[in-house]
């Protein structure tokens, strides 16, 4: 059994309004730091996943991302890092 460490970022899908991102954008504009920053908020997760090989562990990670960490109706996820421990 091999063990891997993965970093996952979950963000709202394109076209889904991100009110928290918009609020940060407004603050940046108001303070004059940056005119339009296109801020997008999201969530970061880091976790260990085991598997017989890389393909198996990645498939498991995919299920975790789809079923637990994100909701495909409005969110998408991206595996930022996947390394063997």
């Amino acid at each position: 059994m091999k063990k891997y460490k993965a970093d996952i970022i979950v963000t709202l899908k394109k076209g889904v309004r991100d009110p928290q991102g918009a609020a940060v954008d407004t603050v940046l504009k108001r303070t004059g730091i940056q005119e339009i920053a296109q801020v997008q908020t999201g969530k970061f997760f880091t976790l260990d996943v085991t598997g017989s090989d890389e393909t198996n562990a990645k498939a498991k990670l995919d299920t975790i991302c789809r079923e637990v960490l994100s909701n495909p109706v409005l969110e998408s996820y991206k595996v930022e890092r996947f390394v063997e421990l």
């Binding site: 889904v16 309004r17 009110p19 928290q20 609020a23 909701n71 109706v73 409005l74």
Partner: peptide, 16 residues
């Protein structure tokens, strides 16, 4: 909605 017993989803209020 999360369990898909009803369609759609609920997200953060527009005014945060």
């Amino acid at each position: 909605c999360e369990t898909k017993l009803l369609p759609g989803i609920l997200s953060t209020n527009t005014n945060t």
